[in-house]
Design a protein around this nucleic acid. Structure first.
Length: 328
DNA sequence: GCCGTTACGGTTGAG
DNA sequence: TGCTCAACCGTAACG
């Protein structure tokens, strides 16, 4: 029986990899994609070896190059409303002072006066809509104070929305013995873009918590490994390079144990992500937590300690060629 | 064959 | 409590 919000079955892509539609790849996979790319392995090879579609590899690498983060974006939720009562109030004030003012001028003034910053500045069309719908009739002054505006309007933060956002939030209770991700590993979510270079860097936000001296400026993979070790988090665990080529680069097989990957199976009831939930700890398993069956699968045949989480899958699991964790 | 892009079907969470 | 909407996801296909 799958947990709440936890997909019971995954799907198998053309490469034989298992994925959950609509859900991000495990962080360990994402991390490995980036690492392999940094080692000079071509995206097409990464795609084949990790059994992740090349489009996904391309996407993850592009994001990493752009933001420096391997983490997926914040899923769900709504954008912050920029037309807050305070903003509307200021717009009305501007309009009262200068009835001929243009929407774009209002926009400039909102920015200049510090009412809004560049992140929560309403668009010209939004301002026009406000002028039309809410301020069109200035005889209705006080409407917002008396009617729509709360007695104590919410403060207008510089970062307007969920500045600190534990991403992804979880609906799934942590299984017994399964460690939860420390709160300080929560991912910052900042609108409008969860991909801002300095703030959404999951790695950075983590590492900054980990060590004041550890910044993206001196970010190294070895440091990340140490961090992973410290946090004992499979979300970031990946195997060290076990095999190397004469030039020191890892062999492809050091990442994927081919025999552990079965040939393509039609979409069957495969649990792709053990303990796959909406939490950042979705991919986290603790060393003490083991599936009841005592077996373990790895969705992408990586050296990721991702024990099986689903409970009623034993029969179907046994009925198919199991995707075993290569290094477990 | 490689790779960037995009349509698609799906999940998620705030309002 | 359930719905809506807009964000996100990875895959598959196209060029």
């Amino acid at each position: 029986m799958p947990g709440i919000g936890e997909p019971a079955f995954g799907e198998v892509n053309q490469l034989g990899g298992v994925f959950v539609n609509g859900r991000p790849l495990p962080n360990a996979i994402r991390l490995r994609i980036v690492e392999l790319a940094q080692l000079g392995i071509r995206p097409c090879d990464i795609s084949r070896q990790l059994r992740v579609s090349h489009g996904c590899v391309s996407k993850i690498l592009a994001r990493y190059n752009e933001t420096g983060s391997i983490l997926p974006g914040a899923i769900g939720g709504s954008k912050p409303r920029v037309t807050t009562p305070t903003v509307v109030k200021h717009i009305r004030t501007y309009k009262q002072r200068d009835p001929g003012i243009f929407a774009w001028e209002i926009r400039d003034r909102l920015l200049a006066d510090g009412v809004c910053d560049k992140f929560n500045l309403p668009s010209v069309s939004s301002i026009s809509r406000i002028l039309r719908n809410k301020i069109g009739n200035l005889s209705q002054q006080g409407q917002y104070e008396s009617g729509k505006q709360a007695p104590h309007p919410p403060p207008q933060p510089t970062l307007p929305y969920n500045h600190l956002y534990s991403y992804p939030t979880s609906k799934v209770p942590t299984p017994p013995g399964m460690p939860t991700l420390p709160g300080h590993m929560a991912m910052h979510r900042i609108w409008p873009s969860s991909h801002s270079v300095t703030d959404i860097l999951g790695i950075r936000s983590i590492t900054e918590q980990q060590s004041n001296s550890f910044t993206t400026d001196n970010f190294t993979w070895s440091a990340l490994r140490a961090l992973v070790k410290t946090h004992n988090s499979a979300a970031f665990i990946y195997s060290p390079l076990k095999q190397t080529t004469p030039n020191g680069l890892p062999t492809v097989n050091s990442y994927v144990t081919a025999p552990s990957i079965p040939p393509y199976h039609p979409p069957t009831q495969v649990s792709p992500y053990m303990g796959y939930s909406a939490t950042t700890s979705a991919y986290v398993t603790g060393p003490t937590w083991q599936p009841a069956s005592g077996s373990a699968l790895s969705p992408h045949s990586c050296d990721i300690a991702t024990p099986l989480a689903f409970k009623s899958m034993a029969a179907s699991r046994d009925a198919i060629h199991p995707v075993t964790a290569s290094a477990l």
